Simulated scan of single mutants.
Amino acid sequence: MNRELENGIVTSYPALYRSLEPRYSGACLFECDDGWYQIIDELSRKLETQARKSDLQVVCVKEKLGSLRVYLRGPATGRVQDWVATAEGLSRNTCERCTQAAMLRRHKDGGGIRTLCPACAAAMDYVIE
């Protein structure tokens, strides 16, 4: 995710992201493209309320196997787990690059899997069924 969007999320939800660090030097805090920004922002808005009441923290946000993954530390109630599952489910139907309706696609070289709309898939050499 671009740095401006990352900074906006971290600034808007300080309790939730108080200990979020890049996994390695020079990496982004949010290891996904900008298309999932709205999903992450909405989830963060809900989780921030819980983080202010407890030790709940987000320790990693990334794309894995074409889906958003959000890793938490601290008390994750059933409600919190439901919010995370809903966000992860939305990511499976939202283009990671541009927010359009999307589906899982495999790269033409047989490599990575990402959730992309037809236009983004074509631009990135992913298979379009």
Rank of each mutant, 00 (worst) to 15 (best):
G66F: 05
R92Y: 02
Y17L: 08
Y13N: 07
A101D: 05
L65R: 11
L47C: 10
Y71N: 09
S19I: 15
T11V: 02
C28R: 13
Y17S: 07
L116K: 00
A51H: 10
Q100A: 14
L16S: 05
R79C: 08
S67W: 09
G111T: 11
K108Q: 14
Q38L: 15
I113D: 01
V10E: 06
M124N: 12
R106F: 03
L72K: 09
M1T: 13
G89Q: 14
G26L: 01
L5V: 01
K46N: 14
R105Y: 03
I9D: 04
A87E: 14
P75Q: 14
N2C: 03
P75W: 12
K64I: 02
N93E: 10
A27Q: 00
K108H: 11
W83N: 10
L90E: 11
T49G: 11
R106V: 15
D41T: 07
V10S: 07
L29T: 06
P14G: 04
G8I: 02
G110T: 01
C117D: 03
T99E: 14
T115E: 04
L29S: 05
G111P: 03
Q100K: 10
W83I: 06
S44V: 01
T99Y: 05
V70T: 00
E48K: 06
N2M: 04
V10I: 15
F30N: 02
N7I: 04
D109T: 13
Q100N: 12
T49H: 12
E21T: 09
R23P: 01
Y24Q: 10
S91M: 05
Q100F: 05
Q100M: 06
Q50T: 15
F30T: 02
C95T: 01
R92M: 12
S67G: 15
S44F: 02
R79P: 02
G89W: 08
V70D: 00
N93S: 06
I39M: 03
E42I: 13
R23H: 02
V84E: 08
C95P: 00
G66Y: 04
S44T: 02
S54C: 13
E31C: 11
L16G: 04
D109V: 11
E4D: 10
C28S: 12
C32H: 10
C98E: 08
T99S: 15
M103K: 08
R45D: 08
A119K: 09
R92T: 14
A27S: 05
T11Q: 08
Q38P: 15
T86L: 09
I40F: 05
K62R: 09
T94I: 13
N7F: 01
I40S: 05
A122I: 04
I9H: 05
T86R: 12
E63R: 05
S91P: 06
P14T: 04
A85Q: 11
F30M: 06
T49C: 07
G66N: 03
S91A: 08
A85L: 10
G66K: 04
A51W: 10
L47T: 08
P22Q: 10
C95F: 00
P75N: 14
A51C: 11
A51G: 12
A87P: 14
G89S: 14
M1S: 13
V127W: 03
K64M: 05
I39R: 03
R106I: 13
V58C: 09
C117H: 03
P75I: 14
R18H: 09
T86G: 03
V70S: 01
A101S: 08
K62G: 01
M103R: 10
G112P: 04
L16C: 05
G26N: 00
A51V: 13
G35E: 11
A123E: 15
I113C: 01
